[in-house]
Simulated scan of single mutants.
Amino acid sequence: MNTLLRALRPTLRLRLTLLNGILLVGAGAIMLAVAWLTIDDVLHPASSLRLGTEVELGDGTRLPVGEWQDLVVAQSRAELLAKGLVALGVIGLFGVVAAYVVAGRSLRPLHQVTAMAQRLGEETLDQRIRYTGANDEVAELAATFDAMLDRLGESFEAQKRFVANASHELRTPLAVMRTEIDVTVTDDEADVQEFRRMAYVVRDASERANGLVDALLILARSEAQTGRRLARTVQADLADGVHAALSAQKNEIGRLKLDVSTDLRPAVAEGDPGLLERLAGNLIENAVRYNHLHGRLWARTESPGGGVVRLVVGNTGFEVDQADVPGLFEPFRRGGRERTGARGSGLGLSIVRAVCEAHGGTVAAVAQPGGGLEVTVTLPRA
Rank of each mutant, 00 (worst) to 15 (best):
L216E: 11
Q225H: 09
V201N: 11
T226H: 04
L216D: 15
L219Y: 06
R229Q: 03
S206C: 04
V201E: 11
A239I: 06
M198P: 13
D237R: 09
L212Y: 08
V234T: 14
R229S: 11
T226L: 01
Q235H: 02
A231M: 05
G227Q: 00
G227F: 01
A231R: 02
Q225V: 03
R208F: 06
G241I: 12
R203F: 10
R221I: 00
L217M: 07
T233E: 05
A199P: 02
Q225K: 10
D214R: 11
A215G: 12
L230K: 01
R203G: 06
E207N: 08
G227L: 04
A205D: 00
V213S: 03
Q235K: 10
R208G: 12
V242K: 08
A199S: 11
D237E: 15
R208C: 04
A205R: 10
D204H: 08
A244V: 13
I218D: 02
A239N: 13
R221K: 07
A231E: 09
R229I: 02
I218Q: 00
Q225S: 09
E223Q: 14
R229C: 01
R229V: 07
T226I: 08
A244H: 06
G241C: 02
H243N: 13
A224P: 04
V242D: 08
Y200E: 03
A239G: 12
A220V: 03
S206A: 15
V201Y: 01
T226P: 03
V213F: 05
S222T: 09
D214A: 13
L216M: 14
V234A: 15
R203H: 10
L238S: 13
L238H: 06
R232L: 01
D204F: 01
E207A: 07
R228A: 01
A224V: 02
S222G: 15
A244L: 14
Y200L: 15
G211P: 10
S206P: 00
A231W: 00
L212K: 15
Q225G: 08
M198C: 12
E207P: 00
R229D: 04
L216W: 01
L219S: 13
A205L: 02
A236L: 15
Q225C: 04
R208L: 05
L219Q: 05
E207K: 09
T226F: 01
D240F: 02
N210P: 12
R221N: 14
S222Y: 09
S206H: 05
V242A: 07
A220G: 13
S222K: 08
Q225N: 10
M198T: 14
S206Y: 08
A209L: 08
V242P: 05
Q225T: 02
T226N: 07
A220E: 09
A199N: 11
E223Y: 12
L230F: 00
R221W: 01
G211H: 02
R232T: 05
A244D: 07
I218V: 02
R228S: 01
V202A: 09
A205V: 02
A205W: 00
L238W: 05
S222D: 15
A224R: 12
E223N: 04
L212S: 08
R232F: 05
R208N: 02
A209M: 11
